[in-house]
Design a protein around this nucleic acid. Sequence first.
DNA 1: CATGAATGAGTGTTCATTCAT
DNA 2: GATGAATGAACACTCATTCAT
Lengths: 214, 214, 214, 214
Amino acid sequence: MGLVGTQSKQRVPRAVRERQMLDAAVATFAKRGYRAASMDEIAVAAGVSKPLVYLYLHSKDELYSACVRREAEALQAAVRAAVEPGAPADRQLWSGLLAFFEHTAAHPDGWAILYSQARTVGEPFAEEVAAMRAEIAEFVRALIGAAAADAHCDPVLADREVAGLAHALVGAAESLAGWGAAHSGRENAATLMNFAWSGLANLMRGGRWEPSAR
Amino acid sequence: MGLVGTQSKQRVPRAVRERQMLDAAVATFAKRGYRAASMDEIAVAAGVSKPLVYLYLHSKDELYSACVRREAEALQAAVRAAVEPGAPADRQLWSGLLAFFEHTAAHPDGWAILYSQARTVGEPFAEEVAAMRAEIAEFVRALIGAAAADAHCDPVLADREVAGLAHALVGAAESLAGWGAAHSGRENAATLMNFAWSGLANLMRGGRWEPSAR
Amino acid sequence: MGLVGTQSKQRVPRAVRERQMLDAAVATFAKRGYRAASMDEIAVAAGVSKPLVYLYLHSKDELYSACVRREAEALQAAVRAAVEPGAPADRQLWSGLLAFFEHTAAHPDGWAILYSQARTVGEPFAEEVAAMRAEIAEFVRALIGAAAADAHCDPVLADREVAGLAHALVGAAESLAGWGAAHSGRENAATLMNFAWSGLANLMRGGRWEPSAR
Amino acid sequence: MGLVGTQSKQRVPRAVRERQMLDAAVATFAKRGYRAASMDEIAVAAGVSKPLVYLYLHSKDELYSACVRREAEALQAAVRAAVEPGAPADRQLWSGLLAFFEHTAAHPDGWAILYSQARTVGEPFAEEVAAMRAEIAEFVRALIGAAAADAHCDPVLADREVAGLAHALVGAAESLAGWGAAHSGRENAATLMNFAWSGLANLMRGGRWEPSAR
DNA sequence: CATGAATGAGTGTTCATTCAT
DNA sequence: GATGAATGAACACTCATTCAT
């Protein structure tokens, strides 16, 4: 006793403790869902006492919010870092998709929170996640718009249609991320590019599928 | 007293009451989520006492299960009824998408249960919903396969790639259903067909987007 | 329809229906205990609807009370019928014990209600059962008193001691009835007579066990 | 304020609180029975909130089990401490009975739990109590056997008969403990010794009561 | 006579949250 | 800085009991 470094109760700087708590919370929320995860379980998983969790993160809502924010920012940062601003639109989309599939495969708990959990209506933070999603869709929309401009696309695509296409593409990517977790990110990205880009290119050339067509 | 319909304790046949309860439960589960919805709230919404809900539907789990089953069957029936088995593949896909978007737009609560809620990991019945989704994806996969065969598609598409495409399409449709609830089903279906079918057609002609392409 | 004897819903006279209900109730109360037995279960076991049970027996309390009363009277009647009023005290005790063990062995559910269930403090009817027990003890006490008088018992036994002896004997009999359900009534009765009567005889002769005796 | 003991939320060490809870639970279970006693009532009687009871004792079953265990061990300890292993059999029996009557008179609630409540078929822990009872009966059986051996008892008593006698004696003691709670333990013990020991002694001398005797 | 339909009141249990130390 | 002790409020579920038919 009295010897430096022999305390059993670690004095750990706040930043580190907070990260431990967030890690534990992300894992627990991903496994159980927001309501079913208990603060007790999270505190135990983080290796700290419950009041400490409250001291640092104030409430279950704020804790979950912090988890969502952290994971969302990490995903967005990964995608942003992969995209070269000056490159052609298809190249940018490809890089972004690749980074997206690789990041979600590497961080399944984070992805689960963003995709499966936080979306649940009625729960808090559906808005935060929806905002992130909207931001991504807007980015994709801009890419499509740029490509259309480059191609001097003849019968200009309606804004609303472009936005719809962007949402469809985002949904397709999310679905693939969930379904193709077993596959490599490169494979998923290639599948989606092949699927989407040709359709877009065709649209820009004025080719349309006609419902009345026999 | 004496007026028809002024009795305090309504005597209603079981089948009717059960439907009222399911309606109330679907609305409540859609608004709050499985865990956050309380049996009290559902009973009040259905205009009956809690014990009666338990008498007929036995538990929260069974009640939720019944909701999921009913909504899933309704959606599948709507899609199935719209698709003409003998028609060409693109025609079938179009009809199915149209029916899907129209049904989900007309029954947003049912769709919320199937899409947002039941998927949440940790909640019960995620499996049932995943199974329904897999069934739909398989149907789409078969359509794509048939179209590819019709087109004597040269460099045969790998099975795994077709399955991936099917999941991407399903995800795109789900995403559009959520985003474009305000739009007409016809519009959404057209957007998706334009987006997807041209890409598929191009793929079948052997056209591929090449990541290495500068 | 209209044919005599072909109704599916039996019209059964009240007395018979009541007996069916009591039989079912005795079996159910014996198996589950007073609180754990539900009126639903009893009604199903009796093969009638619940409101009919209420129509005839008014409440769970009254139903249980009727069960206790019926079983208690049956047991007392069996014992009373076996005892010959004029016979010597030991003979009377023997006959009573024999009848008691045989009746309880033949009606284990009734005995369970009287012995294990109805005694539980806090439950209603503990009093009714206690009264029956007191009546039996009093009968035994009178027997012992008569025997003592016959024997011109020297140092007259204190009234309280005789009452205590009677209670001890009753308890011994109850314990044997529970433990020795597998044995024949005759065996149990013989064991108890051998055990008790000699002790009583000795007491009457003035023989006492002395605590201070080495 | 400032006065010792005037805090609104008492901070009491866990061991103390647990004992308070057990005391309250024993009293409540004794008064109402297992099913009729509510956790609310117990918590109020213990002067704490219900969640604290659950935090420490986990469930109604475990709480009841803890009560039964504690009271059973206390009773057994009291009896064991009173019996001198080397003493003659009658002396041992006397000491044991005396301790038994004194302990049950001093702790009527504990005795109620062991005797009236836990025995009720259908309730949990009937087994635990039955096991304790069997242990006591076995101890008494051994005493009778030893006495018989000392006395060179001629027509050896059948094992089953000895076991029956032991059960009869235990039942007699239980009955007296319930009936004679108002009397002194010494009085009850004396009554039972006089009743039982002479009968046993007579049996060992080969004296038997004959049913066929006129 | 007999019952399907219905409920008020209460049960055991859990959880997010906060003090006093 | 860190925690053991404590609780208010709510939740899923059950049961004895009663109408209206």
